[in-house]
Design a protein around this nucleic acid. Sequence first.
DNA 1: CGTATTTGACCAGCGC
DNA 2: GCGCTGGTCAAATACG
Length: 289
Amino acid sequence: MDEQWMIGQTSLSLGLNVGGPRGAPSVTRVLLEEDFMSSKKNHEVEALEAELRRVGEENRRLSHMLRALVAKYADLQCKVSGTMAAANNHHQSWTTSEDGSSASATRKRARSDSLDTASRNPSPPLAAAGSSGRFAVSVTVGPDQAECTPVHEPCNSKRVRADEVKASRVSKLYVHADPSDVSLVVKDGFQWRKYGQKVTKDNPCPRAYFRCSFAPSCQVKKKVQRSAEDKTMLVATYDGDHNHAPPPKQQGSGGRKRGDAAAVRVSAAPVLVQQQGESGSFDGGAGGR
DNA sequence: CGTATTTGACCAGCGC
DNA sequence: GCGCTGGTCAAATACG
Ligand SMILES: [Zn+2]
């Protein structure tokens, strides 16, 4: 299923890329000038100019979208490559992405590396789900993921590794949400209760902390933060696994609550693999503090 | 009135 | 030892 979706993305991306370059507008403008010099039909020139402007705007928008799409596609391709050949990691650098060393231009690359590193598991616990307008990628990293040692590390890698080791089950979910959404309350099928919000150092957008409020014995936590540059990307980091039956999407064809048409409701249910192995002795202790 | 969200305070881990 | 940063708590507030 994932491959099919990715193939679709590939074809789309290639098609857009072929027709993407901004060479046509200049040609159109030349033709338009010629028409104007001939002084045949001014109104037609005006119409053409208006259309040209509109097309230019659309082209720019499409270009932007295409760029994001290409970036995502590159991430997915890298991930797939890493999954297929888990041992052959040639061009992976795993730059200082989590450390946050102000990598402005290489933000996408860093994300790609992160995804790729997470996908370097022996078993492929990654799931991709895409809708017509939304984009969601879920990556579940396991405890044995920290075995892979980075290659040429500039400075860090021990802190990140320790963090990964400490976290038993961390699954990242990249969702493509509308930037008009100001509340990071991502309704992904579960009931979350927000318990904190902090402003991180390298990201101007605040990070929201959620906790599963569906079951008292479920201490699944979730961190939601939108990307610094791609305001349309919401990075939801799920920590833990639900030990209760998920609410079966009881939200029918009702109206929205806040009248927000483009809400963030992440309906793309990520097929989180329960291959974490031993799930026992995990749901019992729910004692907080 | 009960519940969810907000938001400042508090704390723990880590680097210098 | 001190400062910084991320994570959590809990009182206050908003909302249904
Ligand atoms: Zn839960």
